[in-house]
Amino acid sequence: MTRLRADRRRPMTLLRAVVAELRKTATLPASAAATAVAVLGPLGITVLNAFSVRNAIRSGQPGLVAYTSPAEAAFSAAPLGTIGAIILGVVVISSEFTANSPDAGGGRQITATLAATPRRLVVLAAKAVAVVLNVLAAAAITLPACLFVADFVIGDLATPDDLGPTAARAAGAALYWTLTALMALAITVLTRSGVIPLIVLIVNSSLVSVSMVLTHVTTLAYYLPDAAGMRLFADDPLGEFEHALAPLTGGLVMAAWALGFLAVSSAVFTRRDA
């Protein structure tokens, strides 16, 4: 009897945990910073891209830029959103494990989290849901705003974009950000500290992508997590990435990676001492 009652409460527990995690992200300055990067980063780069396109066209030298479409100006700014998503995925976990100053008892938030929600899978699922909702909300604001700004700046000079493919690329970018955030979350569960995942993941998605370097060695590298989904939003105006996975295949491969990372981190998180 009591077992049955306890089991029926599970959806309630998950819902409560999700609401609690949403509150936690809403009141953590580091996650506000992550959202700011995800929203303002792409917008800023889009503006820069759009002005260089406009200037190139106005000066009669469109050959100076790789593209003249507003959508291209917007989506080539999407990696900044990836960085915001990485920060969010990392801090949602690392904030649980940062110790308070010894002056204040040196405790960590994970103690309070697991006291309120002792089922570890529920905690992890709630965190994943909160991250996904936050990233999708950021994407829903940022991507249309970027497209609008690019269109506004480049104006009539632009090569027009088709609505269908542009919407698909926007959805693809949102998916790419979401899956990246989930992988960052899963990796931070393993490290507990956010420092290494932040440095490695941000460098990898901004300065040098290890996967992209490896694609010069073998095209199999296009199956690596960050490379797999690149075509979800990135076009290939210069024809550099002919072996990259098609959007659908790539999206599925990337999703499989994210699920794999989450499975490993769940296994570790449920077994490890807090």
Binding site: T27, S95, T98, N100, Q109
Partner: peptide, 17 residues
Amino acid sequence: DGSGAHRSRTARNHLAW
């Protein structure tokens, strides 16, 4: 080990979640 609250959150926001 003390409060279990994250240092950058307020006391009320901690108790709220």
